[in-house]
């Protein structure tokens, strides 16, 4: 069931509009056409996923500090949910804390990005994601 890399949807779970815009701008800049679905927190993201509003294959780009339900809690939820436990999740956060990183990897994330202070770093992240879904096969 081979799908084109451009079919991969990015579920962006991020409460900060600017950060979300930065990602979107970076996609534009790098001419990446993949669809982006935005959720403001863990609860909204879970809703979208469970309703099937996000088409598969998908990759989750997850912030850790968010209102209502944070990233770590969201991770625990999807890992406990049989239909969602196969999701590939990257964490994108301002937290450099070792503890946060450790907790995230324990929930089997694919990668941990620390938000940089300038736009260039975001470009790198977007490039990584683009390369990732071009090369890596994702579950449908």
């Amino acid at each position: 069931m081979a799908k084109k890399p451009t079919d991969v949807t990015l579920l962006l779970v991020e409460d900060d509009d600017i950060d979300a815009m930065t990602i979107e701008r970076s996609f534009l800049k790098q001419r990446i056409a993949n669809p982006i679905v935005r959720a403001y927190d863990g609860i909204e993201a879970l809703d979208l996923l469970r309703k099937g509003d996000v088409s598969r294959p998908l990759i989750v780009l997850l912030d850790l500090q968010m209102p209502r339900m944070g990233g770590i809690e969201f991770l625990k939820e999807i890992r406990a949910d049989e239909s969602l436990s196969d999701l590939v999740v990257f964490v994108l956060t301002t937290s450099k804390s070792e503890e946060d990183m450790l907790l995230s990897y324990r929930q089997h994330i694919a990668g941990y990005f620390v938000k940089g202070e300038a736009g260039e770093k975001f470009l790198d992240i977007v490039n990584v994601l683009d390369s990732y879904w071009k090369v890596v096969h994702l579950p449908g």
Partner: peptide, 17 residues
């Protein structure tokens, strides 16, 4: 200092845009 950083980042970002 941590929480002050993110709005600051946003300002910088917006300025660059």
């Amino acid at each position: 200092s941590h929480d002050l950083k993110s709005p600051l980042n946003a300002i910088k970002q917006l300025v660059s845009w």
